[in-house]
Design a protein around this nucleic acid. Structure first.
Lengths: 216, 216
DNA sequence: CTCCTAAGTGAACAGCCGTAGCGCTAAGAC
DNA sequence: GTCTTAGCGCTACGGCTGTTCACTTAGGAG
Protein backbone atom coordinates (compact mmCIF):
# COMPACT_ATOMS: atom_id res chain seq x y z
CA UNK A 1 0.00 0.00 0.00
CA UNK A 2 1.97 2.92 1.30
CA UNK A 3 5.26 2.82 -0.49
CA UNK A 4 6.25 6.13 1.07
CA UNK A 5 5.72 4.95 4.63
CA UNK A 6 8.53 4.89 7.13
CA UNK A 7 11.21 2.22 7.27
CA UNK A 8 10.35 0.80 3.88
CA UNK A 9 12.01 -2.61 4.13
CA UNK A 10 11.78 -3.85 0.54
CA UNK A 11 14.15 -2.02 -1.72
CA UNK A 12 15.44 -3.21 -5.03
CA UNK A 13 18.70 -2.22 -6.54
CA UNK A 14 18.44 0.55 -9.11
CA UNK A 15 19.18 -0.27 -12.76
CA UNK A 16 22.48 0.59 -14.31
CA UNK A 17 22.39 4.30 -15.03
CA UNK A 18 19.86 5.11 -12.31
CA UNK A 19 22.08 5.36 -9.25
CA UNK A 20 20.94 8.93 -8.79
CA UNK A 21 17.52 7.73 -7.74
CA UNK A 22 18.93 6.54 -4.46
CA UNK A 23 20.46 9.97 -3.98
CA UNK A 24 17.07 11.59 -4.34
CA UNK A 25 15.55 9.08 -1.94
CA UNK A 26 18.24 9.80 0.64
CA UNK A 27 17.72 13.55 0.37
CA UNK A 28 13.97 13.15 0.62
CA UNK A 29 14.25 11.01 3.73
CA UNK A 30 16.81 13.38 5.20
CA UNK A 31 14.41 16.27 4.75
CA UNK A 32 11.56 14.37 6.35
CA UNK A 33 13.71 13.43 9.32
CA UNK A 34 15.19 16.90 9.69
CA UNK A 35 11.68 18.27 9.71
CA UNK A 36 10.69 15.85 12.45
CA UNK A 37 13.79 16.52 14.50
CA UNK A 38 14.15 20.27 13.98
CA UNK A 39 17.87 20.00 14.64
CA UNK A 40 20.60 18.95 12.28
CA UNK A 41 22.91 17.61 14.97
CA UNK A 42 20.21 15.20 16.09
CA UNK A 43 20.13 13.58 12.68
CA UNK A 44 22.41 10.61 12.24
CA UNK A 45 23.55 9.25 8.95
CA UNK A 46 22.80 5.77 10.18
CA UNK A 47 19.22 6.68 11.03
CA UNK A 48 18.70 8.05 7.55
CA UNK A 49 20.06 4.85 6.05
CA UNK A 50 17.80 2.75 8.27
CA UNK A 51 14.79 4.79 7.21
CA UNK A 52 15.65 4.56 3.52
CA UNK A 53 16.26 0.84 3.90
CA UNK A 54 19.88 0.74 2.84
CA UNK A 55 23.21 0.13 4.51
CA UNK A 56 24.80 3.12 6.18
CA UNK A 57 27.80 2.86 3.92
CA UNK A 58 25.68 3.28 0.83
CA UNK A 59 25.13 6.90 1.76
CA UNK A 60 28.82 7.51 1.13
CA UNK A 61 28.33 6.58 -2.50
CA UNK A 62 26.48 9.86 -3.02
CA UNK A 63 27.71 12.14 -0.21
CA UNK A 64 31.26 12.50 1.09
CA UNK A 65 30.19 12.83 4.73
CA UNK A 66 27.26 13.56 7.01
CA UNK A 67 27.49 17.34 6.75
CA UNK A 68 27.48 17.22 2.96
CA UNK A 69 24.28 15.21 3.12
CA UNK A 70 22.59 17.74 5.38
CA UNK A 71 23.79 20.67 3.31
CA UNK A 72 22.62 19.09 0.08
CA UNK A 73 19.21 18.47 1.63
CA UNK A 74 18.97 22.03 2.89
CA UNK A 75 20.00 23.39 -0.48
CA UNK A 76 17.20 21.54 -2.21
CA UNK A 77 14.80 22.54 0.53
CA UNK A 78 15.70 26.22 0.12
CA UNK A 79 15.43 25.97 -3.63
CA UNK A 80 11.93 24.51 -3.35
CA UNK A 81 10.95 27.19 -0.86
CA UNK A 82 12.21 30.02 -3.06
CA UNK A 83 10.28 28.57 -5.97
CA UNK A 84 7.12 28.35 -3.85
CA UNK A 85 7.52 31.92 -2.64
CA UNK A 86 8.01 33.27 -6.13
CA UNK A 87 5.02 31.34 -7.34
CA UNK A 88 2.89 32.71 -4.50
CA UNK A 89 4.01 36.21 -5.34
CA UNK A 90 3.25 35.78 -9.02
CA UNK A 91 -0.47 35.74 -8.23
CA UNK A 92 -2.47 38.60 -9.76
CA UNK A 93 -2.77 41.81 -7.77
CA UNK A 94 -0.91 44.97 -6.95
CA UNK A 95 2.58 44.87 -5.39
CA UNK A 96 1.15 45.05 -1.86
CA UNK A 97 -1.10 42.07 -2.39
CA UNK A 98 1.80 40.18 -3.90
CA UNK A 99 4.14 41.02 -1.03
CA UNK A 100 1.43 39.93 1.36
CA UNK A 101 0.96 36.67 -0.55
CA UNK A 102 4.69 36.05 -0.31
CA UNK A 103 4.73 36.54 3.44
CA UNK A 104 1.65 34.42 4.01
CA UNK A 105 3.07 31.63 1.89
CA UNK A 106 6.15 31.72 4.07
CA UNK A 107 3.94 31.52 7.16
CA UNK A 108 2.08 28.53 5.80
CA UNK A 109 5.29 26.83 4.77
CA UNK A 110 6.75 27.24 8.22
CA UNK A 111 3.57 25.92 9.80
CA UNK A 112 3.92 22.79 7.66
CA UNK A 113 7.71 22.53 7.85
CA UNK A 114 8.55 23.87 11.27
CA UNK A 115 11.45 21.52 11.77
CA UNK A 116 13.05 22.47 8.48
CA UNK A 117 12.62 26.13 9.31
CA UNK A 118 14.42 25.55 12.57
CA UNK A 119 17.26 23.73 10.87
CA UNK A 120 17.57 26.41 8.20
CA UNK A 121 17.65 29.35 10.59
CA UNK A 122 18.72 28.06 13.97
CA UNK A 123 21.07 25.20 13.21
CA UNK A 124 24.64 25.48 14.43
CA UNK A 125 25.52 24.50 10.87
CA UNK A 126 24.98 28.19 10.10
CA UNK A 127 28.00 29.04 12.21
CA UNK A 128 30.15 26.29 10.74
CA UNK A 129 29.40 26.87 7.07
CA UNK A 130 27.94 29.66 4.99
CA UNK A 131 24.89 28.18 3.18
CA UNK A 132 25.08 30.79 0.44
CA UNK A 133 21.89 29.57 -1.18
CA UNK A 134 19.89 31.18 1.61
CA UNK A 135 20.74 34.71 0.52
CA UNK A 136 18.18 34.66 -2.26
CA UNK A 137 15.36 34.67 0.29
CA UNK A 138 16.20 38.08 1.72
CA UNK A 139 16.97 39.65 -1.63
CA UNK A 140 13.62 38.78 -3.16
CA UNK A 141 11.68 40.15 -0.22
CA UNK A 142 13.55 43.43 -0.47
CA UNK A 143 12.66 43.61 -4.14
CA UNK A 144 9.00 43.01 -3.32
CA UNK A 145 9.02 45.84 -0.77
CA UNK A 146 10.78 48.10 -3.23
CA UNK A 147 8.04 47.48 -5.78
CA UNK A 148 5.43 48.59 -3.23
CA UNK A 149 7.31 51.86 -2.76
CA UNK A 150 7.83 52.37 -6.49
CA UNK A 151 4.13 51.92 -7.08
CA UNK A 152 3.36 54.57 -4.48
CA UNK A 153 1.57 52.02 -2.28
CA UNK A 154 4.06 52.45 0.55
CA UNK A 155 5.83 55.62 1.68
CA UNK A 156 9.19 55.98 -0.05
CA UNK A 157 11.93 54.96 2.35
CA UNK A 158 15.09 52.89 2.45
CA UNK A 159 13.71 49.56 1.24
CA UNK A 160 16.60 47.61 2.72
CA UNK A 161 15.98 48.93 6.23
CA UNK A 162 12.23 48.56 6.01
CA UNK A 163 12.62 45.01 4.75
CA UNK A 164 15.07 44.19 7.49
CA UNK A 165 12.49 45.27 10.06
CA UNK A 166 9.70 43.44 8.28
CA UNK A 167 11.70 40.27 7.95
CA UNK A 168 12.82 40.39 11.57
CA UNK A 169 9.23 40.84 12.72
CA UNK A 170 7.82 38.06 10.58
CA UNK A 171 10.72 35.83 11.48
CA UNK A 172 10.06 36.45 15.15
CA UNK A 173 6.34 35.85 14.84
CA UNK A 174 6.91 32.63 12.97
CA UNK A 175 9.74 31.53 15.23
CA UNK A 176 7.66 31.90 18.37
CA UNK A 177 4.90 29.80 16.87
CA UNK A 178 7.31 27.09 15.80
CA UNK A 179 9.26 26.93 19.02
CA UNK A 180 6.34 27.28 21.41
CA UNK A 181 3.55 25.37 19.69
CA UNK A 182 1.73 25.01 23.01
CA UNK A 183 1.09 28.75 23.21
CA UNK A 184 -2.34 29.75 21.93
CA UNK A 185 -1.53 32.75 19.78
CA UNK A 186 -3.80 34.76 17.47
CA UNK A 187 -3.60 33.88 13.77
CA UNK A 188 -0.34 34.71 12.07
CA UNK A 189 -2.20 36.30 9.19
CA UNK A 190 -3.49 39.16 11.33
CA UNK A 191 -0.07 39.77 12.76
CA UNK A 192 1.53 39.87 9.33
CA UNK A 193 -1.07 42.40 8.23
CA UNK A 194 -0.26 44.62 11.20
CA UNK A 195 3.43 44.40 10.33
CA UNK A 196 2.71 45.39 6.74
CA UNK A 197 0.66 48.35 7.90
CA UNK A 198 2.89 49.56 10.70
CA UNK A 199 6.35 48.67 9.45
CA UNK A 200 6.01 49.11 5.69
CA UNK A 201 3.24 51.68 5.85
CA UNK A 202 0.87 50.14 3.33
CA UNK A 203 -2.92 50.47 3.48
CA UNK A 204 -4.41 47.03 3.27
CA UNK A 205 -8.18 47.53 3.15
CA UNK A 206 -8.19 48.88 -0.38
CA UNK A 207 -5.25 47.06 -1.83
CA UNK A 208 -4.94 43.31 -1.81
CA UNK A 209 -6.67 41.79 1.15
CA UNK A 210 -10.05 40.17 0.57
CA UNK A 211 -12.05 43.26 1.43
CA UNK A 212 -13.66 42.42 4.77
CA UNK A 213 -13.79 39.00 6.33
CA UNK A 214 -13.37 36.09 3.99
CA UNK A 215 -14.01 36.63 0.33
CA UNK A 216 -17.30 35.06 -0.84
CA UNK B 1 46.13 31.15 38.99
CA UNK B 2 42.83 31.07 37.20
CA UNK B 3 40.65 28.84 39.27
CA UNK B 4 37.71 29.47 36.96
CA UNK B 5 39.50 28.31 33.84
CA UNK B 6 38.32 25.31 31.87
CA UNK B 7 38.94 21.73 32.96
CA UNK B 8 40.02 22.72 36.46
CA UNK B 9 41.87 19.58 37.52
CA UNK B 10 42.43 20.21 41.24
CA UNK B 11 39.24 19.96 43.20
CA UNK B 12 38.95 19.31 46.91
CA UNK B 13 36.05 17.66 48.57
CA UNK B 14 33.56 20.06 50.07
CA UNK B 15 33.23 20.12 53.86
CA UNK B 16 30.39 18.40 55.63
CA UNK B 17 27.36 20.64 55.22
CA UNK B 18 28.59 22.24 51.97
CA UNK B 19 27.56 19.65 49.40
CA UNK B 20 25.39 22.26 47.73
CA UNK B 21 28.47 24.10 46.57
CA UNK B 22 29.12 21.36 44.04
CA UNK B 23 25.57 21.74 42.83
CA UNK B 24 26.16 25.41 42.16
CA UNK B 25 29.43 24.65 40.41
CA UNK B 26 27.73 22.09 38.20
CA UNK B 27 24.96 24.50 37.27
CA UNK B 28 27.46 27.27 36.58
CA UNK B 29 29.51 25.04 34.31
CA UNK B 30 26.38 23.74 32.63
CA UNK B 31 25.34 27.31 31.84
CA UNK B 32 28.76 28.17 30.45
CA UNK B 33 28.76 25.09 28.25
CA UNK B 34 25.18 25.56 27.11
CA UNK B 35 26.09 29.10 26.15
CA UNK B 36 29.03 27.85 24.14
CA UNK B 37 27.04 25.09 22.47
CA UNK B 38 23.74 26.88 21.92
CA UNK B 39 21.93 23.56 21.95
CA UNK B 40 20.84 21.51 24.92
CA UNK B 41 21.02 18.17 23.12
CA UNK B 42 24.68 18.78 22.36
CA UNK B 43 25.50 19.00 26.05
CA UNK B 44 26.54 15.75 27.66
CA UNK B 45 26.49 15.08 31.33
CA UNK B 46 29.95 13.58 31.05
CA UNK B 47 31.36 16.71 29.44
CA UNK B 48 29.97 18.83 32.27
CA UNK B 49 31.55 16.52 34.82
CA UNK B 50 34.89 16.63 33.01
CA UNK B 51 34.78 20.42 32.95
CA UNK B 52 33.86 20.66 36.62
CA UNK B 53 36.59 18.16 37.45
CA UNK B 54 34.43 15.46 39.04
CA UNK B 55 33.28 11.98 38.13
CA UNK B 56 30.29 11.79 35.85
CA UNK B 57 28.34 9.85 38.45
CA UNK B 58 28.76 12.62 40.99
CA UNK B 59 26.32 14.71 39.01
CA UNK B 60 23.61 12.25 40.01
CA UNK B 61 24.04 13.23 43.62
CA UNK B 62 22.37 16.54 42.87
CA UNK B 63 20.31 15.90 39.74
CA UNK B 64 18.20 12.83 38.96
CA UNK B 65 19.13 12.81 35.28
CA UNK B 66 20.58 14.87 32.48
CA UNK B 67 17.35 16.70 31.62
CA UNK B 68 16.85 17.77 35.22
CA UNK B 69 20.32 19.28 35.19
CA UNK B 70 19.61 21.27 32.04
CA UNK B 71 16.21 22.41 33.31
CA UNK B 72 17.66 23.50 36.66
CA UNK B 73 20.34 25.47 34.86
CA UNK B 74 17.80 27.14 32.58
CA UNK B 75 15.59 27.99 35.51
CA UNK B 76 18.39 29.81 37.27
CA UNK B 77 19.39 31.46 34.01
CA UNK B 78 15.86 32.74 33.45
CA UNK B 79 15.61 33.94 37.01
CA UNK B 80 18.83 35.93 36.63
CA UNK B 81 17.64 37.36 33.33
CA UNK B 82 14.30 38.46 34.77
CA UNK B 83 16.10 40.13 37.63
CA UNK B 84 18.43 41.93 35.24
CA UNK B 85 15.54 43.08 33.09
CA UNK B 86 13.61 44.43 36.05
CA UNK B 87 16.69 46.19 37.31
CA UNK B 88 17.28 47.79 33.89
CA UNK B 89 13.68 48.94 33.81
CA UNK B 90 13.90 50.42 37.27
CA UNK B 91 16.19 53.15 35.99
CA UNK B 92 14.82 56.70 36.27
CA UNK B 93 12.72 58.04 33.43
CA UNK B 94 9.23 57.92 31.97
CA UNK B 95 7.57 54.60 31.08
CA UNK B 96 8.79 54.80 27.49
CA UNK B 97 12.41 55.23 28.52
CA UNK B 98 12.02 52.35 30.94
CA UNK B 99 10.44 50.07 28.35
CA UNK B 100 13.26 50.98 26.00
CA UNK B 101 15.83 50.22 28.68
CA UNK B 102 14.22 46.83 29.22
CA UNK B 103 14.40 45.95 25.54
CA UNK B 104 17.96 47.17 25.16
CA UNK B 105 19.04 45.20 28.20
CA UNK B 106 17.54 42.13 26.59
CA UNK B 107 19.46 42.90 23.42
CA UNK B 108 22.72 43.25 25.30
CA UNK B 109 22.07 40.10 27.29
CA UNK B 110 21.44 38.11 24.12
CA UNK B 111 24.59 39.53 22.54
CA UNK B 112 26.56 38.26 25.53
CA UNK B 113 24.63 35.03 26.02
CA UNK B 114 23.60 34.03 22.52
CA UNK B 115 23.91 30.35 23.20
CA UNK B 116 21.71 30.51 26.28
CA UNK B 117 19.14 32.51 24.34
CA UNK B 118 19.10 29.80 21.73
CA UNK B 119 18.66 27.07 24.30
CA UNK B 120 15.89 28.97 26.08
CA UNK B 121 13.87 29.72 22.96
CA UNK B 122 14.83 27.20 20.32
CA UNK B 123 15.66 24.07 22.24
CA UNK B 124 13.61 20.97 21.57
CA UNK B 125 13.31 20.78 25.34
CA UNK B 126 10.53 23.35 24.90
CA UNK B 127 8.45 20.73 23.14
CA UNK B 128 9.23 17.99 25.65
CA UNK B 129 8.58 19.99 28.84
CA UNK B 130 6.84 23.21 29.73
CA UNK B 131 9.48 25.43 31.41
CA UNK B 132 6.85 27.46 33.25
CA UNK B 133 9.41 29.88 34.64
CA UNK B 134 9.68 31.51 31.22
CA UNK B 135 6.19 32.97 31.34
CA UNK B 136 7.25 35.83 33.56
CA UNK B 137 9.27 37.36 30.73
CA UNK B 138 6.27 38.04 28.50
CA UNK B 139 4.04 39.23 31.32
CA UNK B 140 6.43 41.91 32.49
CA UNK B 141 6.92 43.35 29.02
CA UNK B 142 3.18 43.61 28.57
CA UNK B 143 2.97 45.49 31.84
CA UNK B 144 5.67 47.89 30.67
CA UNK B 145 3.81 48.59 27.43
CA UNK B 146 0.58 49.07 29.35
CA UNK B 147 2.27 51.71 31.51
CA UNK B 148 3.27 53.63 28.39
CA UNK B 149 -0.34 53.69 27.27
CA UNK B 150 -1.64 54.61 30.70
CA UNK B 151 0.77 57.53 30.82
CA UNK B 152 -0.51 58.77 27.46
CA UNK B 153 2.91 58.23 25.87
CA UNK B 154 1.58 55.62 23.48
CA UNK B 155 -1.80 55.50 21.72
CA UNK B 156 -4.28 53.50 23.76
CA UNK B 157 -4.68 50.07 22.23
CA UNK B 158 -4.83 46.44 23.25
CA UNK B 159 -1.57 46.16 25.17
CA UNK B 160 -1.43 42.38 24.79
CA UNK B 161 -1.57 42.53 21.01
CA UNK B 162 0.85 45.43 20.75
CA UNK B 163 3.27 43.64 23.03
CA UNK B 164 2.94 40.42 21.07
CA UNK B 165 3.97 42.30 17.95
CA UNK B 166 6.78 44.12 19.73
CA UNK B 167 8.11 40.96 21.29
CA UNK B 168 7.93 39.07 18.02
CA UNK B 169 9.81 41.84 16.23
CA UNK B 170 12.51 42.17 18.88
CA UNK B 171 12.80 38.41 19.13
CA UNK B 172 13.24 38.17 15.38
CA UNK B 173 15.82 40.94 15.28
CA UNK B 174 17.78 39.38 18.08
CA UNK B 175 17.39 35.87 16.73
CA UNK B 176 18.77 36.80 13.31
CA UNK B 177 21.81 38.36 14.92
CA UNK B 178 22.44 35.35 17.10
CA UNK B 179 21.94 32.75 14.41
CA UNK B 180 23.72 34.58 11.61
CA UNK B 181 26.58 36.34 13.35
CA UNK B 182 28.43 36.62 10.04
CA UNK B 183 25.81 39.01 8.65
CA UNK B 184 26.80 42.65 9.02
CA UNK B 185 23.60 44.20 10.29
CA UNK B 186 22.94 47.75 11.52
CA UNK B 187 22.96 48.22 15.30
CA UNK B 188 20.15 46.54 17.16
CA UNK B 189 19.49 49.73 19.12
CA UNK B 190 18.29 51.60 16.07
CA UNK B 191 16.05 48.73 15.07
CA UNK B 192 14.51 48.52 18.54
CA UNK B 193 13.81 52.25 18.41
CA UNK B 194 12.03 51.86 15.09
CA UNK B 195 9.94 49.05 16.54
CA UNK B 196 8.99 51.20 19.51
CA UNK B 197 7.99 54.05 17.23
CA UNK B 198 6.18 52.06 14.56
CA UNK B 199 4.70 49.18 16.55
CA UNK B 200 3.95 50.80 19.91
CA UNK B 201 3.51 54.32 18.58
CA UNK B 202 5.72 56.17 21.04
CA UNK B 203 7.63 59.33 20.21
CA UNK B 204 11.23 58.81 21.18
CA UNK B 205 12.98 62.13 20.57
CA UNK B 206 11.31 63.89 23.46
CA UNK B 207 10.84 60.99 25.83
CA UNK B 208 13.66 58.78 26.90
CA UNK B 209 16.34 58.53 24.32
CA UNK B 210 19.50 60.60 24.77
CA UNK B 211 18.21 63.57 22.79
CA UNK B 212 20.18 63.43 19.52
CA UNK B 213 23.23 61.32 18.92
CA UNK B 214 25.06 60.27 22.01
CA UNK B 215 24.52 62.14 25.24
CA UNK B 216 27.45 64.32 26.36
C1' DC C 1 28.81 -17.20 -23.17
C1' DT C 2 32.42 -14.04 -20.49
C1' DC C 3 33.74 -9.99 -18.28
C1' DC C 4 33.45 -5.36 -16.43
C1' DT C 5 31.80 -2.27 -13.51
C1' DA C 6 27.93 0.28 -11.29
C1' DA C 7 25.39 -0.42 -7.11
C1' DG C 8 25.25 -1.68 -2.74
C1' DT C 9 26.68 -4.75 1.81
C1' DG C 10 28.88 -6.43 6.21
C1' DA C 11 32.02 -6.21 9.67
C1' DA C 12 34.84 -3.57 12.27
C1' DC C 13 37.33 0.52 14.56
C1' DA C 14 37.45 4.11 17.71
C1' DG C 15 34.88 6.99 20.16
C1' DC C 16 31.00 8.98 22.48
C1' DC C 17 26.87 8.62 25.55
C1' DG C 18 23.50 7.87 30.08
C1' DT C 19 23.43 5.61 34.13
C1' DA C 20 23.45 1.51 37.74
C1' DG C 21 26.08 -0.58 41.41
C1' DC C 22 29.56 -0.66 44.55
C1' DG C 23 33.68 1.16 46.93
C1' DC C 24 36.36 4.54 49.14
C1' DT C 25 37.70 8.59 52.22
C1' DA C 26 37.64 11.92 55.36
C1' DA C 27 34.94 15.13 58.39
C1' DG C 28 32.63 15.41 62.32
C1' DA C 29 29.63 13.26 66.35
C1' DC C 30 30.41 10.79 70.50
C1' DG D 1 39.84 6.67 69.89
C1' DT D 2 35.76 4.80 67.32
C1' DC D 3 31.93 5.02 64.16
C1' DT D 4 28.73 7.07 61.03
C1' DT D 5 27.87 9.10 56.90
C1' DA D 6 28.20 12.95 53.52
C1' DG D 7 30.68 13.47 49.45
C1' DC D 8 32.47 11.58 45.90
C1' DG D 9 35.19 8.12 42.43
C1' DC D 10 35.76 3.60 39.50
C1' DT D 11 34.17 0.21 36.59
C1' DA D 12 31.13 -1.57 33.64
C1' DC D 13 26.94 -2.39 30.54
C1' DG D 14 24.48 -1.58 26.51
C1' DG D 15 23.82 1.41 22.99
C1' DC D 16 24.66 4.95 19.79
C1' DT D 17 27.70 7.47 16.32
C1' DG D 18 30.83 8.60 11.71
C1' DT D 19 33.77 6.43 8.81
C1' DT D 20 36.78 2.86 6.33
C1' DC D 21 37.89 -1.35 3.87
C1' DA D 22 37.07 -5.30 1.67
C1' DC D 23 33.47 -7.66 -0.36
C1' DT D 24 29.38 -9.20 -3.17
C1' DT D 25 25.78 -8.93 -6.57
C1' DA D 26 23.61 -8.01 -10.81
C1' DG D 27 22.90 -5.62 -15.38
C1' DG D 28 24.59 -4.78 -19.71
C1' DA D 29 28.52 -4.71 -23.38
C1' DG D 30 31.38 -7.60 -26.20
Amino acid sequence: MDTTSSTTPARGRNPRGQGERLRRDIIGTTLRMLNDLGDDEALSLRAVAREVGIAATSVYIHFPDRDALVIAALEQCTHDLVRGLDQAESAPGDPVARLRARLLFLGAWVRDHGGLYKVLHESTLNQRTHLAFKEELAARTTAAVQRCMDAGLAPADDAATVTLDLRAAVHGAVSIRVNEPALALPPLEEQVDRFLIKLVGVRLGESGRPSLGKRA
